[in-house]
């Protein structure tokens, strides 16, 4: 899922500052799961903002609304009435959601309330880890299911660098060395021979380096 994190209150306050009627729009999918933009977060943020504005004597009306997914028209449409009533929208969706809302409502500023962080996994309660960079060409099969492109700080494809110590990456003591994990996995799978394979340079054209991507499923288009 896409992991995001709510922006600091001060920043949100800054960006919504110019508007008088604000809709805080939540998204019930990924950002809800990572507690950045579901119903609860919308309510909490709205409450906090109201307190800020009340304290500063500003009169800003705040409305709350949450839709199932902000990246899909059918759901966005449900918010159109609420959006119409306001002069700005603070979207708590991921960047895709913010843009999807923005492109549907040309005349209303859509502001991001969440920093979209990465594609990740709920590792354990309250801990999210980045696991995928969306490179567009998955090669996890040879890496024993651990992605060196995302999880190795140097995107190394042919084994660990010299900075790995006790399975920890040189970048941060909180970061496991992806290559350590790959090696362990391959050992457990009996595929250590993969380590001897030379992995040729990554073709980045399928990733974001090839410009914004577009996926067309011809079979779904009529």
């Amino acid at each position: 899922m896409i992991v995001g994190e709510q922006k600091p209150l001060a920043e949100i306050k800054e960006i919504v500052g110019p508007y008088r009627k604000l809709l805080i729009l939540g998204c019930g999918t990924c950002v809800k799961t990572c507690f950045a933009g579901g119903e609860d977060e919308v309510a909490t943020l709205a409450s906090a903002l109201r307190l800020i504005f009340k304290k500063e004597g500003q009169n800003i009306k705040i409305e709350e609304f949450t839709i199932e997914r902000q990246c899909e028209n059918e759901f966005i449409q449900e918010a159109s009435e609420a959006i119409g009533r306001n002069d700005s929208v603070l979207s708590l969706a991921c960047g895709a959601g913010v843009q999807a809302i923005a492109r549907r409502f040309a005349k209303i500023p859509v502001l991001p309330g969440v920093n979209t962080t990465f594609i990740g996994v709920l590792e354990s309660q309250g801990v999210f880890t980045e696991e995928c960079s969306g490179c567009g060409n998955c090669e996890l099969a040879i890496f024993g299911g651990v992605c060196p492109i995302t999880r190795c700080s140097k995107k190394l494809l042919n084994g660990p660098c010299g900075g790995s110590r006790h399975g920890i990456c040189e970048v941060s003591p909180d970061t496991e060395c992806a290559w350590q994990l790959i090696i362990e996995r391959l050992e457990a799978l009996g595929q250590v021979h993969n380590l001897r394979c030379y992995i040729s340079p990554k073709d980045w054209s399928s990733s974001n380096s090839g410009g914004p991507r577009r996926l067309v499923r011809e079979d779904h288009i009529i």
Partner: peptide, 11 residues
């Protein structure tokens, strides 16, 4: 106790 209840009390 949800976050929002606490904030709403102040509100």
């Amino acid at each position: 106790v949800k976050d929002v209840f606490l904030l709403r009390s102040f509100e």
